[in-house]
């Protein structure tokens, strides 16, 4: 079922399915892109970001991009578009006094916002509640705007954790160098996220991010507190978690789909990350949603 909602303040929400589609978009607003199955590609200039259900992308106003879905199987998508006025009003509002935004407000550097963020925690809960309200077809604009303000609270907290803090971890004397290196590390992260189920070498990641392999390894660890390989393992576990939620695949199939070589190492890594074995996690999730 396709749902399109345009509010009086011009914020829009579109929920529906896509398959075999390619479209060029000139973004006018702040646009959150979320999918609930499969993957969707976003080509922004030379940069390619592949979106999976465990992540979301925020596209900034003025971005020109190509959006592409290759699969025949329809993928469920959600797009939330917020006007620049809504976002600037939010930044001036009492919402900014929320206990989780203090750290964001205190950070100095304004950095690029356009990248992939984990679709987890409060962002996930609020979006799922918003989806439920949209499907009830109740025309309560104030309530929808309340959810949208909370989506922004969740986003700015993630931005602080994923961008501002990591940027602050880099110890270059010149701010311009720091920004340049951080931009390249974001490309490295995106390369790993896009190719998580393929076999690749650190040199491939280095080449995609225009850094030498040694420089990449050193600065990646410095910024993110973990090696590129450890980050790849986290991405694979997170994708496995999303596939378990989907409930369509067996554990053995998931191990193959996300690029792990052995079921036993997958089970032990999953348990140490999420406190439950994959099978128990699958049961818990489906008990919750039943």
């Amino acid at each position: 079922m396709r749902i399109y909602k345009e509010l009086i303040n011009k914020n829009t929400i579109t929920s529906g399915t896509l398959n075999r589609v390619s479209a060029t978009v000139d973004e006018q607003n702040y646009s959150f892109k979320i999918i609930f199955s499969g993957h969707q590609d976003f080509l922004i200039g030379n940069r390619e970001i592949r979106l999976y259900p465990d992540s979301f992308i925020l596209l900034a106003p003025g971005t020109k991009y190509l959006s592409r879905v290759d699969s025949d199987e329809p993928i469920k998508t959600l797009s939330i578009s917020l006007t620049q006025t809504f976002v600037s009003d939010f930044l001036e509002s009492n919402y900014m006094n929320s206990n989780c935004l203090t750290a964001y407000k205190n950070a100095e550097a304004q950095l690029p916002i356009q990248t992939i963020y984990p679709f987890k925690g409060d962002m996930w809960f609020n979006i799922m509640n918003l989806q439920t309200q949209l499907h009830k077809d109740q025309n309560n604009e104030q309530l929808v705007n309340e959810y949208l303000s909370h989506v922004l609270i969740n986003y700015y907290r993630l931005y602080h954790e994923e961008v501002q803090v990591k940027f602050g971890n880099l110890n270059f004397a010149r701010n311009s160098t720091k920004k340049e290196i951080f931009g390249r590390l974001m490309l490295a992260k995106e390369y790993i996220s896009n190719n998580y189920n393929q076999k690749f070498k650190i040199e491939d990641v280095a080449s995609a991010s225009c850094l030498s392999a040694t420089h990449l390894m050193r600065t990646f660890k410095l910024a993110y507190g973990l090696s590129a390989y450890e980050y790849l393992t986290l991405v694979r576990l997170s994708r496995a978690q999303a596939l378990l939620k989907e409930g369509k695949y067996s554990i053995n199939e998931i191990v193959m789909l996300v690029g792990f070589e052995s079921v036993s190492s997958f089970i032990s890594l999953f348990k140490s990350s999420f406190s439950h074995t994959p099978l128990k996690y699958k049961k818990l999730i489906h008990q919750k949603t039943a």
Partner: peptide, 28 residues
């Protein structure tokens, strides 16, 4: 099961909130 929805519904009924929905380790 949805703090934002119920917060909004109670506001409409004239309830005065001493703390608007905010995030804790236990939830909203």
């Amino acid at each position: 099961n949805d703090c934002i929805r119920d917060y909004h519904s109670l506001l409409d009924k004239g309830i005065r909130f001493t703390k608007t929905p905010d995030y804790t380790d236990n939830g909203l």
